[in-house]
């Protein structure tokens, strides 16, 4: 159930325009959109920001995955809505929800369309040391392996009489100790044998490492980046210099 939230942040192999963009472009897009949705508090503007992201989701053919995240976050969204209605009124509450939607959409678009390998390559080309970028991609690589292991340990402990659902709240947390401890021990063991294998293939031995698949910005990346930059500059000018036209200041009057 709770894993549904992460569905939207899991890469899907697809061939679309958005997938073909450089990860750095998509990172800029996610950060730019986030910045815009934080700068503005007006209902109509936030609605425009959110609606402008929907076509991107459509192009990336990722509506389904996005919907499942939003479903997973329903509780949080409803909570934000109500708290804000009580303290700040309906108009502000809806604005807040639109802001959250824009943030979720921007970042799920990023994670849905950027392969973890591309992400680590992007980090390396952004001068993050290789070992950090590699650690990140390896963490993603080992999630399913460790999850499998956790399942095995869980079954082993349950077949020896461990009852996870027993007791009150604190007891239930304590029930997980017989699963966590073996999992940690086996993960440390695994880490040592992974290290052995890395060492045996010259990991980090020479400073002039080759990268087989370097990222290259293409025309389409520059087009997207220029559009994004223009949108940000124009919005900032309108917001702080010109002032928003009355149409965009409309709000729900209660």
């Amino acid at each position: 159930m709770s894993f549904n939230i992460f569905e939207a942040f899991k890469y899907r192999r697809k061939k679309t325009f958005i997938h073909s963009l450089d990860p750095r472009t998509k990172l800029a897009l996610a950060l730019g959109v986030s910045a815009l949705s934080i700068i503005f508090t007006e209902l109509i503007v936030l609605l425009i920001i959110f609606l402008s992201l929907v076509p991107l989701l459509l192009i990336a053919k990722s509506i389904k995955e996005w919907t499942s995240t939003v479903k997973g976050l329903t509780l949080l969204i409803v909570f934000i809505l109500f708290v804000n209605i009580i303290f700040n009124g309906l108009s502000f509450a809806i604005s807040m929800v639109l802001r959250i939607f824009s943030l979720i959409t921007a970042f799920s678009l990023f994670f849905l369309t950027v392969h973890p390998d591309e992400l680590s390559q992007a980090l390396i080309q952004m001068k993050i040391p290789f070992s950090f970028a590699f650690a990140m991609s390896m963490a993603i690589r080992y999630v399913p392996t460790i999850a499998n292991e956790a399942q095995t340990i869980r079954e082993a402990q349950m077949s020896r009489g461990l009852e996870l659902e027993k007791g009150g709240f604190t007891q239930r947390i304590k029930n997980f100790i017989p699963i966590i401890i073996p999992l940690i021990v086996s993960s440390i063991r695994r880490a040592i044998s992974i290290a052995e294998s890395l060492e045996s293939r010259g990991f980090g031995a020479y400073p002039n490492r080759t990268y087989l698949l370097p990222l290259k910005m293409r025309k389409r990346d520059y087009t997207v980046l220029i559009t994004l930059l223009a949108a940000i500059i124009i919005s900032v000018i309108i917001k702080f210099v010109v002032g928003l036209p009355p149409l965009l200041l409309l709000s729900i009057p209660f």
């Binding site: 392969h115 973890p116 390998d117 991609s137 390896m138 993603i140 690589r141 392996t145 695994r190 044998s193 992974i194 052995e196 294998s197 890395l198 293939r201 010259g202 990991f203 980090g204 031995a205 020479y206 002039n208 490492r209 080759t210 990268y211 087989l212 698949l213």
Partner: peptide
């Protein structure tokens, strides 16, 4: 080694095969 799970550190086979030679700067 015995357990292939602990030796395949990349997210796809191509990168796995490239891993050693990449480290060597080939």
């Amino acid at each position: 080694f015995q357990n292939p799970e602990n030796q395949l550190v990349s997210l796809n086979v191509l990168r796995e095969l490239a891993f050693g030679p990449e480290n060597m700067g080939i």
